[in-house]
Amino acid sequence: MQYDAFIGKEYAPFTFEVEKGRLRMFAKATGLTDPIYSDEAAAKAAGYRSLPAPLTFAYTITMDAGQSFNVLEDMGVPLPKAVHGGQRFVYHAPICAGDIITGRQKVTNVYDKKGGALVFIETEIPLRNQLGEAVCDLYSTVVVRNG
């Protein structure tokens, strides 16, 4: 596989609207019991504009927007061969219900190990809110198992 053509490649910008119901379901599914994740009055009392998105919700935003999948498709990688190898979040400001989040994914590195048996795809996605503020940067590693 010719990796160099993908390093530095950027994908189309995307937008995601953060809905209260989605955040409540996410909090329930992960067992978050603090009322700031389900009760807007409690969230506001704690200083948030509305329900805050839990710490790993930013990844859901990118997944809903089809990120990672678009890179794999572009590279001709069958989905069952790919696994999520690592994830890093750098936080700048809270993401809250009602926010309109925009992002754009860039492939930062592609390399292999074990003679091509494992291919590592590294991407970064900075997210901004409707006020133009940086909220969270995501750095993902996807591992492709060949053979």
């Binding site: 704690a46 839990p54 710490l55 999520h84 190898g85 690592g86 994830q87 936080y91």
Partner: peptide, 13 residues
């Protein structure tokens, strides 16, 4: 600490 205090969080699977 409350999540607004978290600056960075990463994990390898």
């Amino acid at each position: 600490a409350p999540q607004r205090n978290i600056r960075e969080f990463s994990a390898r699977f």
